[in-house]
Design a protein around this nucleic acid. Sequence first.
DNA 1: CGTATAGATCTACACTGTATATACATGAGC
DNA 2: GCTCATGTATATACAGTGTAGATCTATACG
Lengths: 207, 207
Amino acid sequence: MAIADEKGLAAVSMRAVAQRVGVTPMALYPHVGSKAALLDLMVGRLLSMLGEDPAMRAAADADWRTRLRVFASSARLGLQTHPWATGLLFDRPTVTPEAVAVIDKIYSALLDAGVPGREVPRVERLVSTFVLGYVASEVGGRFGPGELDPRGRRGQLPEGALPAHARVAEALDAPVDWDEEFKQGFEEVLRLVESVAAGSRGGARAR
Amino acid sequence: MAIADEKGLAAVSMRAVAQRVGVTPMALYPHVGSKAALLDLMVGRLLSMLGEDPAMRAAADADWRTRLRVFASSARLGLQTHPWATGLLFDRPTVTPEAVAVIDKIYSALLDAGVPGREVPRVERLVSTFVLGYVASEVGGRFGPGELDPRGRRGQLPEGALPAHARVAEALDAPVDWDEEFKQGFEEVLRLVESVAAGSRGGARAR
DNA sequence: CGTATAGATCTACACTGTATATACATGAGC
DNA sequence: GCTCATGTATATACAGTGTAGATCTATACG
């Protein structure tokens, strides 16, 4: 994990890890099994760090909204500190003990919010996909500026090819406060959760 | 792209591509520049396929909701057909001509929905992050079952360690219709978009 | 015809994960 | 104290990666 933090996931080779722990590459195999298993261990460790995060422990008895907010910001912070994990999280089923322990906390918050049990796993997937997807976009560079500034970007295409861009040009030129945007987006996700809960309280609906 | 579709992104080596086109590996370099540039070209081509998707063309004059729905399902279908692209999309800034052309369509739909111009880029990121994140989870295997069935998964931890899982056990054992869940989640995202638009119509709010 | 130039080729380098065979150190049973 | 099994560490080797650098070739132009 130290190697991945410092030089990126690509730098995590069996040889590099072995050198770090002062051993020959093949000596790792009896311990970790394979490289894929090593990556699994890294993800598991990160998830258990999230599960035991002091901020999450402190909020354990708070209302469901606070608990979900703390989860979101802790997860975001953890993934920003360890960006290598985002890609891995999409590739692995969330079935390890560490993963289900985290998910159980989210289930609990959603149940307290009034989301019907039948809907809880679905809404959990929706919420955590927002968090993971958003942070993956931030740290991966999808939200990044690329080589061109916004003005140059619009210049790549023929005049009038991007009518809607023209109508929001001022917003595109303004700098973005990503912390604020994440927070705001998550608040909207929380309202979405509320509406699912309220929908169930309102009784059965058509279809 | 054919190689990636057939044997996964890892199988896309310069040597494999060269063999496919009947040429030596180094002959590719004057044409594509580097492997990273080749991957950029692949992503660009996929995005332009999405932009010219018949379904999206057909819905070009429909109301904003239909346009966004068609975008979501076309993007999902495209990414399911070409799963190698999901990881790449998180890693590259969306600044290529092909990418901004697609984004412009979403901007246009959001403007028609009544989202204020100032908020349009933010809401676009939110909507497309949901679509991309959800599909990346599907094709990457995050939503997959892993090696253990749901019951075995819960058995990994000591009794009572997963109280919330216990309360939603029946939902966890039920099979999931992913098409339906995606559709439902996206409808909720659409309501979220509506609420942003409605919030702006309602005039300024207390912070 | 000669020559410039763009493209293709060949070789080589420093990497990757890991199969295989070998060496070694430690603890158990007699 | 001795043997032997077991788990760990090592060394070597193989097939693969992206691509730098030098060389070769075929086409177009004056």
